[in-house]
Design a protein around this nucleic acid. Structure first.
Lengths: 249, 249
DNA sequence: CGCGCGTTTGACATGACTCAAATGCTGTGG
DNA sequence: CCACAGCATTTGAGTCATGTCAAACGCGCG
């Protein structure tokens, strides 16, 4: 198997099975992680109707751009995305990476326009939830509203944790935290917690963690020398997860 | 007038008028900034009933602590708060400052326990919104739900901006951004955009911006030498807001 | 196969931190 | 009301982690 195959899109199989057949929420593999959790099945059927299962996006394609009017919230169905927001002078901050079952675009509800840009890191697909219609439904389904708030709240929590990371952690702690977070998220999705592919570039990682690319590269090297992880291009093997967790600070 | 009087609690007058008489939402000075915006007046009357107008907190008193079970969302009524979250090793990050009309505790909805600690920076009061009851009401008032999400989304946006600040800005840009943000928020509340009191310590500011106290002190000194602001203890006068905005990066 | 971008590696520069100490302010108790 | 203790703030000197610049390398796409 060549390197090229190793870096094949994450969750591609999932995409094949789930996305391309426009499967209903009830039988979606992501059900457990997704919005409909806790809805009655009649409600779910209703919700199902308003969800647009968009066609897939290829690497580097934008889901939406900054300043675009807010229409929908998106749930990653397969693949991976990054969101970025730019300071007035052109500098960009990667504000987050998003994997299947995670929501994108919620920070646009208030301002009614997307504050960030969302780009596919590999071939990916999303479920589109038109916000207006979601609201209409919400009136009849309080449970849905709770779910939505819960989602918003979850992202809020993880953003606060990112603040700690950016404000208080050393470069090494940042890297460890990043790897552990990826590990957990892959595990939650039924994948290996110790072997996975990085869909984002070193540059994206560096940017997200508030570091220089060179620092990320050196840190990867060091973690490897210390036998905590093994890296081969985009492929990661965590060799000592516990030690890595201790490094998180 | 002594220095002690200069640092009198922010919004104290507001507190006198609004809080101490347990005024209804309809006639609250913060109405324009607060949750009920856009509700019909019957709905508003209903909402009004479930709001607990808690007694005031004194300086350094906690509104809630990390790990406490989630019961309510709070809206600052008078005074000011800071929220902090601590990394496992004891380091703390000040995740935000909160002024009248702003919401605290929304990041607890998902986890059902407060992830952070909220402390009063001065004598302050809050409106307490029991979340359960808010949900019950929400079923009959879709507009309320939208408002809530809008609030959550707003905090999400400002957290993302904070990420840019922490990850990409220089110490000087951070300070300028911080001052400009305060200025805007005071203005929104009907106070002077150019003259106000800092209710938080240099230490809190430094922590929040990911800087050392000494750096904040030196930066204040420099901004003062450059005649962009004037500082006297906790009292700030912005002398050149435009220049400050240009410094935000 | 070759070009270009992403990544690694090395040498150096520096912004911000740490440590240290002086100064000032605040709140307390006599 | 004053004096004192303790904390907050400022100022100075020196260090260090991480950024910047430069160049070599190599993978992956056309």
């Amino acid at each position: 198997m060549t390197q090229a195959n190793n870096v094949a899109p994450l969750f591609r199989d999932l995409a094949k099975v789930e996305h391309e057949h426009h499967v209903a929420c009830q039988s979606c593999a992501l059900y457990r992680l997704c919005l409909p959790l806790g809805l009655h099945s009649d409600d779910l059927a209703q919700l199902d109707k308003i969800i647009k299962r968009s066609q897939s996006l290829s690497r580097n394609q934008s889901l939406f751009d900054s300043q675009a009017p807010f229409k929908s919230i998106y749930v990653v169905r397969s693949g991976a995305f990054k969101t970025t927001i730019s300071a007035s002078n052109g500098r960009e901050q990667v504000t987050g990476f998003y994997f299947p079952g995670e929501f994108i675009g919620m920070d646009a509800i208030y301002s009614q326009s997307y504050q960030s840009t969302a780009k596919a890191l590999e071939t990916s697909s999303v479920c589109e939830l038109p916000f207006e219609r979601l609201q209409e439904f919400g009136a009849a389904m309080p449970q849905l509203q709770v779910q939505m708030m819960s989602r918003l709240s979850k992202e809020l929590s993880s953003d606060k944790n990112l603040m700690v990371l950016l404000g208080k952690k050393t470069a090494e702690e940042k890297m460890a935290t990043f790897l552990v977070s990826l590990s957990r998220r892959f595990q939650d999705r039924g994948f290996s917690a110790t072997e996975f592919q990085l869909s984002m570039s070193r540059g994206d990682i560096a940017n997200h963690l508030g570091l220089a690319v060179e620092t990320v590269s050196r840190l990867f090297g060091r973690l490897q020398d210390d036998r905590l992880v093994r890296l081969e291009g985009k492929s990661v093997t965590i060799e000592d997860l516990e030690a890595l967790q201790k490094l998180c600070g």
